[in-house]
Amino acid sequence: MVEDNPINVAGLNHFFGVGEARKQALGDIDLSIERGSLTILMGPSGSGKTTLLTLMGCLREVQDGSIKLLGQELHGAHEAQMVMLRRRLGFIFQAHNLHESLTAAQNVLMGLQVHGPGNAAKQLSATIHMLDILGLADRVDYLPGNLSGGQKQRVAVARALVSNPEVIFADEPTAALDREAGLNVVKMLKAMGRTRRTTTVMVTHDNRILELADRIISMEEGRIVGDTRSSPTGKPTP
């Protein structure tokens, strides 16, 4: 465990259900994730990767073991502490979760407004800039119902990134995107790691983006069974 790392997990176990229906979802997870890295969690359905992601992202309560996120212990943390931490994070999910009554720009603005009141002009400028980067400059005033599935997902990505979060948690962020759009999103996350030291943890089944990862964690039946890091050439190494 390295204290400077934004995420340190030690002896983590997690269960679903009670009594005879109780099932272990994660077992004995130890993991440290370096600042600025792009780490991918892979494994078959039911392997525990999304459960681990949501625990690290303050979206589930830690039952047993330790997770330190940005220096804060999550096991036993109060809801107010969790809320403050979530404001330092970005979330991208396969389901875009856009508000259907708000335009693309208004949906992205929500990613800034959760941090409290700010300079409205600067917030709008940052919003338009992020949508432009993602190829949506001509869709800022469109409602989600008038956007394609891939465009909706790019709006969701813009919403997650516009506040410059310290850590980004992404669950199948490229599933609704074509190859080029998916690669562009992941390249942006990779660039944020280099320039802003933003840390990204991503669950994916998308083999098209694996070569961009700094690290690939493989999971099966709630346990880590593989851990590979990219070499200077970008190729995975054990």
Results as ranks from 00 to 15, higher is better:
residue 114 V to W: 04
residue 97 N to M: 06
residue 48 G to N: 05
residue 21 A to S: 12
residue 193 G to V: 10
residue 179 R to M: 02
residue 220 E to C: 04
residue 130 M to N: 05
residue 206 D to S: 08
residue 48 G to D: 03
residue 158 A to G: 10
residue 9 V to D: 12
residue 4 D to P: 01
residue 121 A to R: 15
residue 69 L to G: 06
residue 167 V to Q: 05
residue 62 V to N: 14
residue 56 M to G: 03
residue 134 L to E: 03
residue 88 R to H: 12
residue 19 G to S: 09
residue 167 V to N: 11
residue 199 T to S: 10
residue 57 G to R: 02
residue 89 L to W: 04
residue 190 K to P: 09
residue 100 E to L: 09
residue 15 F to R: 12
residue 56 M to L: 12
residue 76 G to C: 11
residue 6 P to G: 09
residue 65 G to I: 11
residue 43 G to T: 04
residue 171 D to R: 08
residue 72 Q to T: 14
residue 123 Q to A: 10
residue 34 E to A: 14
residue 124 L to N: 03
residue 146 N to Q: 12
residue 149 G to L: 05
residue 171 D to S: 07
residue 212 L to E: 04
residue 20 E to N: 11
residue 133 I to C: 11
residue 74 L to Y: 03
residue 114 V to S: 11
residue 131 L to P: 13
residue 199 T to R: 06
residue 186 V to N: 09
residue 169 F to C: 06
residue 165 P to F: 05
residue 96 H to D: 04
residue 77 A to C: 08
residue 28 D to E: 14
residue 227 D to A: 07
residue 238 P to F: 05
residue 187 K to Q: 13
residue 87 R to P: 11
residue 102 L to P: 01
residue 4 D to E: 14
residue 203 V to M: 09
residue 211 E to K: 08
residue 20 E to M: 07
residue 22 R to T: 07
residue 27 G to D: 14
residue 87 R to Q: 15
residue 123 Q to W: 02
residue 178 D to N: 06
residue 165 P to V: 01
residue 135 G to A: 07
residue 162 V to A: 02
residue 32 S to L: 05
residue 70 L to W: 07
residue 76 G to H: 11
residue 191 A to R: 15
residue 219 M to T: 00
residue 190 K to H: 14
residue 93 F to K: 00
residue 176 A to F: 00
residue 19 G to C: 09
residue 83 V to P: 02
residue 152 K to H: 00
residue 82 M to E: 01
residue 79 E to V: 02
residue 103 T to R: 06
residue 25 A to W: 06
residue 76 G to K: 12
residue 23 K to Q: 10
residue 233 T to N: 14
